[in-house]
Amino acid sequence: MSRHDEIWGQLTGYALGELSAPVREQVQAHLAGCAECAIEVRELSLALEAVGVSSTPMTPPVSVKDRMLAGLGSQPFPQALPTTPTTLTIASGRISRPWLAIAASTVLVVGGILAVSQQRAAGLAAELRRVDANVAQLATEATTVAAQADLAVAILTASDMRRIDLQGFDASRDAAARAYWSGTKGLLIVADRLPPPPPGRIYQVWLIGTGGAGPVSAGLVRGRAGRGMLIVAPPAGVTGGTVTVAVTDEPDGGVPAPTGSKHLVGSV
């Protein structure tokens, strides 16, 4: 067993405060240079913090606060300023601890990245990499949303756009749904009051032309709280003057041809 593995196995005991002083010091020495263990300890500590929070709050007698404050008066204030770093130097400027905390907690949703010491630099760097990855993912999602918005505008303003009112069936009989179909730009479908699909299933949209081909999958409906939307370029194979749009529930991930119950149908 490596030293790392050995310490890894002690981290719960460390977070619980049950280790003997020599073992605790060994763990602390290892944490100073191991980002993985430092992050794990932080996660365990936050979980234990939550256990404490699970206790039912109780109001102490007012006298406790009075006694506590009176007791403070007799206590010498130990140290006005900390000896450990409380400011983080960024480029040429310095940011005070509380304001940096507000910024960090708001943007990173991390419980404070304030007292940046050399010992914790590795752990913070790993955490920042994780945040960077999240930001990159959000940027990708934003690009996708922007592209979908452009496509929606193109569909709605297309000269061949036709509106199709969809009728709900069975569990979806109260749903309100409408499709906008352009053979040159694509399909936009929106639905409201759509019940959640059965467990393990998802709503899939089908287009059926009069060109002889069977139903062509247009994609899966994404949404929440009873609302769903799909915006796609025109699928290949949909030809003919009359087009039918149908929505069925299918196994999660979708299927090549409809097999499930129909929920919405409309033609134009």
């Binding site: 936050l46 913090e49 300023l81 450990t84 419980g111 404070g112 990245i113 007292a115 914790r120």
Partner: peptide, 9 residues
Amino acid sequence: HTYDPSRGT
């Protein structure tokens, strides 16, 4: 002054 925000709230 010993509170370390990197270890918890």
